[in-house]
Design a protein around this nucleic acid. Sequence first.
DNA 1: AAATAAAAGCAACATTGTTGCAAAATTTAA
DNA 2: TTAAATTTTGCAACAATGTTGCTTTTATTT
Lengths: 139, 139
Amino acid sequence: MKEEITTILKRNSLSVTASREKILTLFLGQDVALSHSDIEKKAGEKFDRVTVYRTLQTFTDKGIIHTIPTVDNAILYALCKDNCTQGHHHDQHVHFICDKCAQTFCLDNVVTPDVKLPQGYTSQQIEVVVKGVCKACKK
Amino acid sequence: MKEEITTILKRNSLSVTASREKILTLFLGQDVALSHSDIEKKAGEKFDRVTVYRTLQTFTDKGIIHTIPTVDNAILYALCKDNCTQGHHHDQHVHFICDKCAQTFCLDNVVTPDVKLPQGYTSQQIEVVVKGVCKACKK
DNA sequence: AAATAAAAGCAACATTGTTGCAAAATTTAA
DNA sequence: TTAAATTTTGCAACAATGTTGCTTTTATTT
């Protein structure tokens, strides 16, 4: 994993630092979207709050992670599995929030549906967030 | 309009107060979604910040307005045009964010599309936010 | 190994959101 | 219509979240 992380950072012309390694590890270790405070709790004891903010910003700018909007005003972050490039995300997948476990997942295999807009509107990007019960909680 | 506002408040068993009237007026006066800070700027000189928070919360609880998630961590609020009831929103429309004028609209006539989820996932609610260029800005 | 460049940490601050409580306004009931 | 009851407001204090400038530390380049 250590190598994978180095590769990702190098590919994006980022220097390899302890905080970046740690935060990337968190994302690679599971498939749930994380909030800033999640990350701060899991990595923040070793790193300054500001560093976490700046790292997440950098990763987002580079297209390593993407943000997911939520109704409760907490941005979530998740790995970009598609090959996003700097300044140009093209994640076209649906996000899923489980009402039971409160976790958010990227459904990488579910492509965002097309939406027919009224005359005069042009669509650039479509964000779909589905709420419900996830696979693990349904059982 | 004053009567309309009173009707809305009474129907939801809310007392008719100056701040509620003012904030409802803002929503009824146009069709763009508003952020907390928009509202604070437009109504906040007369009312305390806390009152604005509490009023928006009350309106949301009662189903008078609904929230729209955004990627930049600012909840937007917009009137429920469907007949939402307390504790049970059923807005099924698409939201549209214009990249040029940065305004957010409810496309009341565009129903959220169905999304086919993987085995094991149950859908409860689908939120669709489309980004692009709006009617007014396209010209 | 030294010079250069980049990132981290710190402090201070700005914004945003929350809570308890007393004062004021609204509604209810006499 | 007025008094009592209820609800809402405003204030203060606080907590959480996010931002900026600058110095020190760390990583990269030569």
